[in-house]
């Protein structure tokens, strides 16, 4: 199993969700996050003072998938979230050791 952690533009969440649904991946955890990579943020002006807002709003989408479909899922995410501009985000892939379903306590493979 793999944990795929994607950080995407907030307005791309729906498209990523739809792309994953086509692969029958329906479970996911979505979190509002802030961060920056190469993108340097934007200038905000409050009461005439300029501020550099360096941490921009992004959405983090976490899914856990069997190894066999991880590559397809990554491709689907990258394809759906890309605009080609700086700030499109990142995809991280991590190994998952174990997974339990809380309702039943059963261990999933």
């Amino acid at each position: 199993m793999k944990l795929i952690k994607s950080i995407v533009r907030p307005n791309k969440v729906d498209e990523v969700k739809d792309a994953l649904a086509k692969l029958n991946i329906s479970g996911m955890t979505v979190t509002e996050v802030r961060g920056h990579g190469k993108q340097k943020g934007h200038t905000a002006i409050y009461r005439g003072k300029e501020y550099n807002v360096s941490l921009l709003p992004k959405m983090e989408i976490e899914i856990v998938v069997p190894d066999a479909i991880a590559d397809d899922a990554i491709k689907a995410i990258v394809g759906a979230a890309r605009t080609g501009e700086i700030g499109d985000g990142r995809v991280f892939v991590l190994p998952v050791l174990e997974s339990y379903r809380i309702r039943t306590g059963e261990k999933e493979s």
């Binding site: 501020y51 550099n52 807002v53 360096s54 709003p57």
Partner: peptide, 17 residues
């Protein structure tokens, strides 16, 4: 150039000037 809701107690912004 503004956001309605700046999270993390404003720690997302650094002032210059």
């Amino acid at each position: 150039g503004e956001e309605a809701y700046l999270h993390v107690g404003g720690a997302t912004a650094t002032r210059h000037g």
